[in-house]
C-alpha cells in the first residue's frame, strides 16, 4: 500500500516536473510547479513530516507560487519565443540527462544498505510540537538569524520594486 501511494505521488511529481520544463508558457510551468509541490507535500506526510507538509502547502504552494503567478500576470509574460539550438545540444541533451540520473540512481543503490525502509507511521518526531521544541532550543540562534534575513529580504524587495519618486 505504501509503495502504491509512493509510486502514485512520485509519478505525479515527475510528470509535473517534466511538464514544467517542457511548457513554453510560464503560467503552465507555474501550475505544474504547484502540482510538484502538492505531490511532495503528500510524500512528506508519508515520511512522517506533518509540520513540513503543512508548511510546504501553505508557504510554497500558497504564498510563493501566488507571488510567482502574480508577477507573471503583472508582466503579462507570454510564450517564450523558440530559439534555434545547436545540433549536438538537441541530440545529446536528453541522453546525457538520462545518463546523469542513471549514474545517481546507481550510486544511491550502491551506497545505501538494503534494509533502509520507510514505513508510514513509524516516524513520530515530525509533529509541530517536536519540531517547535527543537527549533526554540537547539536551533534558536539560526531561527533568529532567519528572521533577520526575512526582514532584510522584505526591505530589499520594497526598495527594488518601488516606483521612483522624484
Amino acid at each position: 500500500m505504501d509503495q502504491i501511494l509512493f509510486l502514485l505521488f512520485a509519478g505525479i511529481a515527475v510528470l509535473c516536473g517534466i511538464n514544467l520544463v517542457l511548457q513554453s508558457h510560464p503560467i503552465s510551468s507555474a501550475l505544474s510547479l504547484v502540482g510538484v509541490m502538492g505531490a511532495l507535500a503528500l510524500l512528506y506526510l508519508q515520511l512522517g513530516g506533518e509540520f513540513i507538509a503543512a508548511a510546504q502547502l501553505i508557504v510554497y504552494a500558497g504564498a510563493i507560487m501566488v507571488l510567482f503567478i502574480f508577477v507573471i500576470m503583472l508582466l503579462n509574460a507570454g510564450k517564450e519565443r523558440a530559439v534555434p539550438r545547436y545540433l549536438w545540444v538537441r541530440w545529446a541533451g536528453l541522453p546525457l540527462l538520462f545518463a546523469f540520473i542513471a549514474a545517481m540512481a546507481y550510486i544511491v543503490q550502491r551506497i545505501l544498505p538494503p534494509s533502509g525502509e520507510v514505513k508510514f507511521g513509524a516516524f513520530t518526531l515530525g509533529s509541530a510540537e517536536a519540531i517547535g521544541t527543537r527549533l526554540f532550543t537547539t536551533y534558536l540562534l539560526p531561527f533568529e538569524i532567519t528572521s533577520v534575513l526575512i526582514l532584510i529580504a522584505i526591505v530589499g524587495a520594497i526598495v527594488l520594486a518601488r516606483k521612483e519618486i522624484e
Binding site: 505504501d2 515527475v14 516536473g17 514544467l20 508519508q46 540512481a105 544511491v108 508510514f120
Partner: peptide, 22 residues
C-alpha cells in the same frame, strides 16, 4: 509494507535533474 529509502532519493535526483534541465 515499507518503501525503500533509495526510492525517495532517486525521486529527489530525478526532480533535481529536471530542475537543472529547466
Amino acid at each position: 509494507i515499507g518503501v525503500p529509502l533509495s526510492w525517495y532519493l532517486i525521486l529527489s535526483a530525478i526532480l533535481f535533474t529536471l530542475g537543472v534541465a529547466g
